[in-house]
């Protein structure tokens, strides 16, 4: 059926050489795509963080530990609007604490408010915890400004210790009118690495004699 002419035969031989170099070129290009897309997977993380900061959707909120800012902008309070701020708190697995959120408060935009969360270490050893905040609805996130919060740093509770943990915040006057209620929720995690380093320091400082108490609970 198909007659292979001499000229065609030569053509095919030249073809083989060029096919091999074409194959190499195609593979290298595709390998670059593969490496690039692997990197893109990692690039998604900073992109995601930036996106969440702009839109406020993961509820991290704005944290300013600057009292001057509070005084300066806190002077103008919008008395015509009231906002309900609710608090929830959860203790994540592995943290032997009780964590009681503050009562809900009714505030005006622009007003600086202080509330306290209660934490109680149920175990007999020192434990370090870290609270991670989340605000809903997401469109309120950018307008919820914390000036002091126990979530800014890790918190250490000695065995059996109870403590009031302060939170100072205000809600920006630019808060969209549709938002009437804001919920601030905290998840308290055990900080494994800091608990370990804290306790090993404690062990070194005290004598090795009371090591048992560190081991019995946890």
């Amino acid at each position: 059926m198909q007659h292979i002419h001499k000229s065609q035969d030569k053509f095919f031989k030249n073809q083989i050489v060029s096919i091999e170099s074409n194959n190499r070129r195609t593979s290298i290009r595709l390998a670059i795509v593969v490496v690039g897309m692997f990197g893109f997977g990692y690039l998604l993380i900073p992109l995601y963080t930036v996106f969440c900061e702009i839109t406020g959707i993961n509820g991290k909120g704005i944290q300013i530990a600057n009292s001057e800012d509070t005084r300066e902008r806190g002077n103008t309070v919008d008395l015509n609007r009231t906002i309900t701020v609710e608090f929830t708190g959860a203790v994540m697995g592995g943290l032997p604490w009780e964590f009681e959120p503050a009562e809900k408060v009714t505030i005006h935009p622009g007003e600086t408010v202080q509330v306290a969360f209660k934490a109680h270490n149920l175990s007999t050893v020192d434990v370090v915890g870290q609270a991670v905040p989340s605000i809903s609805p997401p469109r309120a996130t950018r307008h919820f400004i914390k000036t002091e919060c126990f979530c800014f740093t890790t918190q250490t509770l000695a065995g059996g210790e109870s403590r009031d943990m302060p939170l100072i915040f205000r809600v920006d006057k630019d808060l969209p009118d549709s938002v009437k209620t804001i919920t601030l929720s905290y998840a308290f995690y055990r900080s494994e690495s800091e608990t370990a380093s804290h306790n090993s320091k404690a062990v070194h400082e005290s004598n090795a004699g009371n090591r048992d108490s560190h081991l019995t609970s946890g």
Binding site: V33, G36, M37, G41, Y189
Partner: peptide
């Protein structure tokens, strides 16, 4: 070739979260 490397990235992050102290997906 475009989407499998993204999965490879994601599960590599899981692996480093599990064993090498990264916190890509760990909210604590």
């Amino acid at each position: 070739v475009t989407c499998i490397p993204v999965l490879a990235g994601a599960i590599t992050m899981l692996l480093t979260d599990r064993h090498f102290g990264t916190h890509f997906f760990d909210s604590s």
